[in-house]
Design a protein around this nucleic acid. Structure first.
Length: 343
DNA sequence: TACCCGTGGCT
DNA sequence: TAGCCAAGGGT
């Protein structure tokens, strides 16, 4: 019965894909490196956000050798707008690794792919199937949703039992012709039709055998765990410009929150004012609070504006200064504050 | 294992 | 509009 459903799924998903697949830049090429770059960018990031950055990135770093030779800071700059900058650093490290260990050629081997920095179980399966035509499964958020609904997965989707079931189904599905298209069909179907909210069940070619549809509660699948509550964080940013209009920026530590990103001198909590005073040598009694806003993770940001008469003071403490701070990979609050300030 | 990372889009 | 979600990996 399950085998029947697997071949039913494979047939209809491939048919859907051939008819409805989007024309995406990384689908026009067969270069494994290009597939690799696209897969890293697409991790937890929507297609429309990736497309323009992918095209610029491939122009600047057309192959593994160029990427490995580039400075990691430059790679992070090219990553601006994508978030999760660790992906950029790992991709760069991955290029160096492939150059050293594999002569600059991506290996056609699942285990060897997974040893490359930034490549895990999903990405190795994606590269192997899409770039090399291997019958390697993959499970991403789309696959979890499509298969979780179709089979009415009884376990919580992220649980060990749930993941085992999903990877087993994905493994069975990919044992057929066109494994790369099969995997992409699963994901494309999840993105376009079997969407997280308001799935298009009325026009779904799988509805006849969809277990969640049969139960009449598609929204109940896949079963999710309650999200952890986010903590509120207060911080202050001091915007300082010198007489040439350059901004005072510094780089955060390479681990922890906003790792490696640039931002105006900042400090957390009650020590913020004193800390900024010490670092800038400016009496904050003269500072005016110009704006504040709420961010997605419930951090409350209070940005501090330094009045003109103090600009340019103590520039000897400048760690990094740039004429165009928005070109730097800035931390989220710093970007929003600066965009607002410059508007 | 649970939790962390960031930005943009959507409702 | 504030929360949810997105082609995950690392620790």
């Amino acid at each position: 019965m399950k085998t029947r459903n697997i071949s039913y799924l494979r047939k209809h998903l491939l048919k859907f894909y051939k008819k409805h697949q989007r024309d995406l830049p990384w689908r026009r090429v067969s270069d494994p490196y290009a597939i690799w770059v696209s897969e890293i960018m697409l991790q937890q990031t929507q297609v429309d956000t990736v497309i323009p950055r992918y095209q610029k990135f491939m122009q600047e770093f057309p192959d593994i050798a160029h990427l490995a030779a580039a400075g990691v800071h430059r790679v992070c700059e090219a990553w601006a707008g994508l978030g999760y900058y660790r992906r950029a650093r790992l991709l760069h490290a991955g290029a160096e690794y492939v150059l050293q260990e594999h002569g600059g050629v991506l290996p056609r081997d699942l285990k060897k792919l997974e040893r490359i920095p930034g490549i895990g179980r999903y990405t190795s399966g994606a590269i192997a199937s899409i770039a090399f035509g291997m019958q390697t499964p993959l499970v991403d958020g789309n696959v979890e949703r499509v298969l979780g609904r179709f089979f009415a997965l009884k376990h919580e989707v992220k649980s060990k039992a749930g993941q085992e079931a999903l990877w087993t189904w994905a493994e069975e599905l990919v044992q057929g012709p066109e494994p790369g298209d099969m995997n992409q069909a699963l994901m494309e179907f999840g993105a376009l039709l079997c969407r997280p909210r308001a799935p298009l069940c009325a026009e779904c070619p799988l509805a006849k055998k969809c277990a969640a549809w049969a139960v009449g509660d598609v929204d109940a699948y896949p079963k999710l765990k309650a999200r952890v509550e986010r903590k509120t964080l207060k911080l202050a940013l001091a915007l300082v410009r010198d007489t040439h209009g350059a901004f005072l920026l510094e780089q955060r530590p390479l681990d922890g929150l906003w790792a490696g990103l640039w931002e105006p001198p900042a400090a957390l909590g009650a020590k913020a004012k004193k800390d900024i005073e010490e670092r800038l040598g400016i009496a904050l009694g003269r500072v005016k609070y110009r704006f504040k806003h709420i961010l997605t993770h419930r951090e409350v940001i209070v940005s501090v504006y330094i009045p003109p008469q103090t600009r340019g003071a103590k520039t000897t403490q400048v760690l990094k200064m740039t004429e165009d701070p928005l070109k730097e990979p800035l931390s989220g609050p710093a970007r929003k504050a600066l965009e607002r300030f410059l508007a």
